[in-house]
Amino acid sequence: MRNDLLINTESACFVPDETAIKTANYTQRHRPTSAKGGDRSVSKMSDAERIAQTQKLLDRAIAYAWHTVKSDRRPPKLTPIRWVWRLAGAYHSSRHTSRLMEEAAQRFAASGRQSLADWAAQKAREEAGHDQLALLDIQSMGYEAEAVVQALIPSAATAVVDYFTQSVQAINPIGCVGHSYASERLGTFQGEEYIQSVEALLPQGTHATRWLRIHSGVGAEVNHVEETVEIVAEMASEECMRVARACYETALLRFTPPKEGYISDEELQNVLKPLKLNTYLVAEN
């Protein structure tokens, strides 16, 4: 899987890419049926091309979201206290995933779409407990984790979860596939170098990148992305476009700066200071 999604956003364009869709759809419906070895090879090549075209469509949707935002506003420089803020966002983004994917699985199964039901059920299992990883990371940073996530609820995380919920509860919950793809595809761009840069900012002996590692290019995200592309590649053209649209809308939420502005380190300090664990308070006194 190539990781060049956001290199050339200036040329990215999210339009109903009929060429990509029709190519994928045509290949899906016109596979050679002969048992000859050469024909089997052609069939495999056709599957690979169909999957590549599908990923290209979904990645273009994400890239166009980046292009659409075109904001000069950037998040403040990462600091240890701001990492706690991000972990709070990770917690809120993760804690509903298994429940919503279980609901999606039930809805897909009820409409006779067993492959999608199996995909969603697997997602529910894979994502179970990831919110607890974020809590452990916050605790490792020296704070009362449960109190922190009650006090810090990033609006960006809330917006993404609301969109996810609406996708699952729509008449056709196919949008949750696009939401999942966009979220996990963006995670693949955070590799070992980025993780180490975060760890270098944190106090020595702190283990606060559990959640990040799981949701990065060194975790399971690459395999998850590939599995989702394979599922989407089997869909009809109209549903492929619905998934692509959900990719775009999810990425748009992820890329758009908060309307209320970024919380300052000073504000974070005021919120978090009373939430330090006693052991850290003792160590400081």
Rank of each mutant, 00 (worst) to 15 (best):
V282Y: 13
A63S: 07
L201K: 11
T209E: 00
E267T: 09
R125G: 14
V222F: 07
R254L: 15
Q28L: 14
I153F: 11
Q150R: 12
V15G: 13
S216Y: 02
K22C: 15
R245N: 12
L186I: 05
D17W: 03
T9Y: 03
P173E: 02
V148C: 11
A151D: 01
T23A: 09
T228Q: 11
E10R: 15
Y143H: 15
P173I: 05
N285P: 06
E230W: 06
K70A: 13
A88I: 02
A117N: 00
C176A: 05
D137L: 09
N223E: 12
N3E: 12
V198H: 01
G175L: 03
I7M: 15
P257Q: 11
L212E: 01
T79H: 11
P80V: 02
V232P: 00
P173D: 02
A159G: 14
Y194R: 15
D47N: 07
L133T: 03
R242W: 04
V160Q: 11
Q122H: 09
N270L: 14
C240L: 09
T33V: 13
K259L: 15
R99H: 15
R242G: 08
Y64C: 08
A24S: 07
D47H: 08
W83D: 03
T165E: 13
Q55C: 03
A147I: 03
L133Q: 03
D4H: 05
S180R: 10
T206E: 05
S197D: 07
R50C: 06
G191Q: 10
D131L: 09
